[in-house]
Simulated assay, not measured.
Amino acid sequence: MTFDDFWSQIAGFTDYGELLTLVRFSLIAAAVLGIAGGLIGVFVMQRDMAFAVHGISELSFAGAAAALLFGVNVVAGSIAGSLIAAIVIGMLGAKARDRNSIIGVLMPFGMGIGILFLALYPGRSGNKFGLLTGQIISVDGPQLGLLIGISIIVLAALFVMWRPLTFDSLDPEVAAARGVPSRMLSLGFMVLLGLMVAVAVQIIGALLVMALLVTPAAAAMRVSSSPRLVPVLSMIFGFVSATGGVLLAIGGSLPISPYITTISFAIYLVCRVIGSRRGHSRTVSGASGATAANASTPAKS
C-alpha cells in the first residue's frame, strides 16, 4: 500500500457534503452521547469505576449480537445486556475488590458469548464488525429517538441524584453515617451507567466505550478540581471528541472509533500537560514563598 492509498482511506474527503447528509442522525446521536457520557464519566472517575464501564460494554456487546442473530432490535438487545451486567455488578460488587472480581468474570463471558452469536450470524460482516468498533452510518431515525430519550433520562436522573451521589462518591463512609442510602444510590447509578454504555456501543463500538465515558472526565480532572467546572469541561471534551470523530470519519473509509479515540486521547494529553505545568508552578510559588518567609524571619542569637 502506498502512502497516497493509506492517506485516502484515513482522510479522503471526497463528496463530503453528500456524505454529511447521510450521517446526520449519527452526528446528532454522537453529540448527545458526548454530553451525557461526559457528565456521567465524572461520577465514574469519582467512584473509581472505569473498569466497570468496560465490563458492562462486554455484556452490552453480547446482547446486541444476540439481537442481531435473532433479528430483533439491536439497541434493545444492547440495553438488555448492559442492564443485566450493571445490576449484577451493583448488587454483588459493593466493595472495590469484589466489584473488580465480578467484572473480571463477566468480561470474558460476555465477549465469548458475543463472538459466538456473531459467528452464527449469517448476515454481512460489516454489521458484526460495527458492534465492536462502531459504524459511521449506524443510527436511523427510530434509533436516534430512542438514544436521545435514553440520554435525557440519564441526564435528568443524574441532576436529581447529584448532591447525594456526589457525597457518596467522594466520602462513602461519612455519607452512610449521615443516612445517605448508599446501596440504592450505587444500584441506581449502575443502571444509569448501563444505559449510557448501551448508547455508546451503538456509536463507538463495544471495545472502545471508555473513550467517551472515562477519558473526557479524566482529562477535565487534570486541569481543574472545581466541582462545577469539571462536569462542564468533561461534557465539552466528550462533545468535541464524539462529533469531531464523526466529522473526520466521513472523510475516510475507516470505522468511526479510531477518530473518536484519537481526539479524546489528544485532549487528555493536552490537559495532562497543562495540569503538570500548573502543578509545577504551584510548587515553585510555594517554595519561593517559603524561602522569602524564612529570609524575612530574624535570626535568633
Rank of each mutant, 00 (worst) to 15 (best):
V32R: 09
G205Q: 14
S296Q: 12
V88A: 14
L68V: 10
R99H: 04
T283Q: 15
V273T: 11
V32L: 02
G81V: 12
I256K: 04
I204A: 01
S226G: 01
L269T: 08
M196A: 03
T261M: 11
G244Q: 03
I203V: 10
A31K: 15
F70G: 01
L19G: 14
R278Q: 15
S26W: 04
I35Y: 07
A29R: 05
P231R: 10
G37C: 07
V44H: 07
A249W: 07
N100F: 06
G41Q: 06
S296V: 14
G130A: 15
M45L: 08
L27S: 10
P298C: 07
I203T: 11
W162S: 06
Y16H: 08
G41K: 08
T297E: 08
A293S: 10
S288W: 10
L69M: 01
I84C: 15
V88D: 05
W162E: 09
F43T: 03
P122H: 02
V75P: 01
I152M: 04
L118I: 06
D140P: 01
M45Q: 13
I89R: 00
Q9I: 11
I102T: 08
S257Q: 10
F189A: 06
A198D: 06
V23M: 08
S169T: 02
M161Y: 08
G130V: 00
P298Y: 05
R124D: 12
Q46E: 14
G77L: 02
L207R: 12
L131I: 02
F167K: 09
R178N: 15
V230F: 05
L144K: 00
V201P: 02
D140S: 02
S234M: 07
G188N: 07
I250R: 01
I40F: 01
G194S: 06
I102F: 09
P298D: 06
S234H: 03
A65L: 04
G63C: 09
S224N: 06
T297H: 10
D171V: 07
I203E: 10
I115M: 14
L233W: 05
G114R: 00
M107Y: 09
S301A: 13
A290Y: 15
N73R: 12
S182C: 09
L59Y: 00
E18M: 09
R97Y: 12
L192V: 04
F117T: 06
S26V: 01
L22S: 07
A198K: 01
Q135T: 14
V230D: 07
S225H: 14
G251H: 02
H54W: 00
L146W: 00
S224A: 07
G12F: 04
T291Y: 11
L207T: 13
S226R: 11
F109G: 04
G194R: 00
V75E: 15
S101W: 07
S125Q: 13
S288N: 14
S57C: 03
S60T: 11
Q202N: 12
P122R: 13
S257C: 03
Y268R: 05
M111S: 09
L187P: 15
R228Q: 05
G279I: 08
G63P: 07
T261L: 05
S281L: 14
M107T: 12
Q135A: 14
A220K: 05
T166Q: 15
G149E: 02
G41D: 01
P181K: 13
